[in-house]
Design a protein around this nucleic acid. Structure first.
Lengths: 155, 155
DNA sequence: CTTGAAAAGAATGCCGT
DNA sequence: ACGGCATTCTTTTCAAG
């Protein structure tokens, strides 16, 4: 991905409603050129969609937690994500290479709801859990691609 | 927050570029009414912005990891987030109540970059780290507010 | 909250380079 | 791959019920 595309992706990561006119001004291209590039970024699956960003505190779900998940029966077929997917309090689900099998990020309204959620997870997926409560979030879901790391080495 | 607002927030969480016309059709309101409600949701800080959603694999940063962070000197004043904020590979930073002080979510292009990133984190913030590599992501950043949990109890 | 209207702005496609 | 232009749709604001 070239420099100009990275710049466009970064701009849209910060403001997904930028008009092609404004995107053009910010990237030094014409409206048509930016439009073309964004369409290709979408076609190539680099930009997969656009979303509103919520303030979870204001939205009434101020309590976040990270939950490590380990199956009770390690020999059972692992369909844990399928068993948990319907629980909407589960923000993210990562399959990981550490002591646990999965790490979940969850959001709930209160400690009581967290307690209920943990029971729901354990019974739905037959797992044990270890929960780390989030106290505060200095930042979250920041857009990457600023390029202060090592440059792409190979492709 | 009422039912209709939750529905609107949920719709915009899934597609942040929905027109007010389509939002109205999907929520059973007129264009003007939806427009009014969205403006109020933005004013109240419930909707804080709009963003493009990236496919990190396609964008060339396929490797994610969760990094637990513990200060080398527990007595030192804790400005760890400030010391790390400039590192753009850091997607999220959570201050947590578990064994560690912080959990970072990071995205890099390769294991080599992860190695360099860890060195950068340790030297910038004077911390030790424990890293859990993400193997796959069944889902991520899903929109909440579907209300299959306990109803709001107070607030 | 609804309908309706009108003006400004954006998206989209076509045609040049 | 980029720029300019024209058409269509959306946004945004206004009015009145």
């Amino acid at each position: 991905m070239e420099e100009l595309d990275r710049r466009i992706v970064q701009l849209l990561s910060r403001d997904g409603r930028l008009s092609f006119t404004d995107l053009g001004k910010a990237s030094g291209l014409s409206t048509s050129a930016v439009h073309q590039r964004v369409r290709r970024l979408e076609e190539r699956g680099i930009i997969t969609g656009y979303r509103a960003v919520l303030n979870h505190d204001a939205a009434g779900i101020p309590l976040a937690a990270l939950i490590s998940v380990i199956p009770v029966d390690p020999a059972a077929p692992d369909d844990i994500p399928d068993r948990l997917r319907h629980i909407t309090a589960l923000d993210s689900c990562f399959s990981v290479a550490g002591d646990e099998n999965y790490v979940l990020k969850v959001r709930v309204a209160s400690p009581l709801e967290l307690e209920e959620l943990l029971a729901q997870i354990r019974s739905a997926a037959n797992v044990t859990t270890r929960t780390t409560v989030v106290l505060s979030t200095p930042w979250e879901d920041r857009s990457p691609l600023a390029g202060d790391e090592a440059p792409a080495e190979d492709g």
